[in-house]
Amino acid sequence: MIELKGITKTYGGKKTTTTALSGLNLTIGKGEIFGVIGHSGAGKSTLIRCINLLERPTEGEVWVNGIELTNLSKRELQQQRRKIGMIFQHFNLLSSATVYDNIAFPLTLIGTPKAAIAEKVNELLVLVGLEEHQSKYPSQLSGGQKQRVGIARALASDPDVLLCDEATSALDPQTTDSILKLLLDINQKFGLTILLITHEMHVIQSICDRVAVIHQGGIVEEGPVTETFLKPKHPVTREFINREGEEGVKLASSVPHPEWTRLVKITFLGAKTYESVMSQVVRETGVNFAILQGTISTIKDVPYGQLTVSFEGASADVDRTLALLKERDLDVEVLE
């Protein structure tokens, strides 16, 4: 659906040049919710604006739905942009227009008949839950309501792709969750491909299928959210993730317990999160254990658990315990 090939974007002249993106490659499948996460200045916004050519890459190719956009004429590009919706961090609504007219704006620009506009806008008002607010102006709306208007406006042209540039960064946590739920519902209802740019791991964890981590203009890690979240490889990825075992490691290091023979982080995924695997294994091997840190949560709709555990017992028994846990498809990482 979206393929970026060797994208480089530089700013400046001959004397001073700033490189925002450097040889970046990325592929996003049809119907995916794909997240790109990175720190400020990493190149996130430049990346998303290169997809609809609001920023034209210095080098490289941008393919959307099988069409290479950088080779299109101005008129052809305008037509293709109608298939790419975009929502923004600060909403970008017309302050002097009502909710209805803001949603209708893209259709008005291309000369859509009034009856067709009314049908589409009313449908979108129901979709985003703003039927009772259609005559209000942006100044009369909450942040979450403004973003719902932005989402409805982006969907007015029936796009194949929805680009979200820090769409929840200006919202409180509860409103963020409601907007993410709306985006997930839209993805499931219409099969819309959604690209989310964010610096919040919670956003990625809540609704994304895959994630790419951007750093200094390049992708440093990419993969399914479950794998990237639970087994981060790059230091930047680890910065974004609250690694549940770290507090347990600090606790174990600060208190002398010479009988502890192994400090381990154990990750449960899927149905095993709620199974009594640990108690079954230690009954079999006879070792004792203490849970120093633990959590149970979800990544999108997949449950997971992480425990930092200290095992006490003979070295051979602890080794056997870890082996049995691995045999039961748990991820076991010896920390100390």
Results as ranks from 00 to 15, higher is better:
312 E>W: 11
162 L>C: 00
56 R>V: 15
32 E>C: 04
1 M>S: 02
22 S>R: 11
58 T>Y: 00
160 D>M: 04
256 P>E: 10
201 M>T: 00
90 H>A: 13
213 V>M: 07
109 L>W: 01
177 D>Y: 12
258 P>E: 10
173 P>G: 05
105 F>P: 04
289 F>N: 03
129 G>W: 06
70 T>Q: 14
173 P>Q: 08
329 D>C: 10
308 T>K: 13
218 G>Y: 03
307 L>T: 08
122 N>G: 09
178 S>M: 09
282 V>E: 10
271 A>I: 13
264 V>R: 10
326 K>T: 13
95 S>N: 13
239 E>V: 06
200 E>G: 07
12 G>F: 11
140 Q>K: 12
120 K>C: 12
324 L>N: 04
295 T>L: 15
248 G>N: 08
244 E>S: 15
255 V>T: 14
274 Y>W: 13
271 A>P: 10
179 I>F: 03
56 R>P: 01
174 Q>G: 03
122 N>R: 08
33 I>S: 01
154 A>K: 04
75 R>Y: 14
189 K>D: 09
219 I>T: 01
232 P>C: 02
104 A>E: 08
237 T>H: 04
77 L>F: 10
236 V>D: 05
49 R>P: 07
206 S>E: 13
113 P>F: 12
132 E>D: 10
217 G>L: 08
15 K>W: 05
290 A>R: 15
325 L>D: 02
114 K>P: 09
123 E>S: 13
